[in-house]
Amino acid sequence: MASRRRMLLKVIILGDSGVGKTSLMNQYVNRKFSNQYKATIGADFLTKEVQFDDRLFTLQIWDTAGQERFQSLGVAFYRGADCCVLVYDVNVMKSFDSLNNWREEFLIQASPPDPENFPFVVLGNKIDVDGGNSRVVSEKKAKTWCASKGNIPYFETSAKDGFNVEAAFECIAKNALKNEPEEDPYLPETIDMTGGQQQRSSGCEC
């Protein structure tokens, strides 16, 4: 059977406070949207089953607190991520400017073995607001940035009306799947005699 490790794909969503990380996740997993702003505390995930090539995977989507003061335990949950989603609000310049920090912070903290090729996906959210009239970050600008960081896939989304959310997450899942397991499989250094004894006593044949 396939390794259980590879059946679980871990995705981390990062971005400034209020850009719509929770809303994007809720829209994708539950197809629900609420206009109300509720801050996220700590890190939490939702799961969704996805199917590729007749194989079923569990997507574990980690939503994070954009406000630093609600991330008091640190970011140990970055470990083992298969894909990192960077979200900004196309109507707020600062949230776009922060993407670089979020990306770098992630690479430092998660320290994937091959940071150059670690899969990111960038989402420009809230394109529905004010019919696009209050937009301050152009698609071109965002794409230029993505290109400069090793051709990060870019999606313009609206968590509110669900625009492009499915497509974005499909891309996220595919990229997560392509990501090689970050660590070599753990092997005990020596044959553990005590462990062996325990195994014998429990009647195992190995």
Binding site: I41, G42, A65, F70, Q71, S72, L73
Partner: peptide, 8 residues
């Protein structure tokens, strides 16, 4: 945060 999560 562990406490706040419950409120969340």
């Amino acid at each position: 945060d562990l406490v706040g999560k419950n409120l969340h």
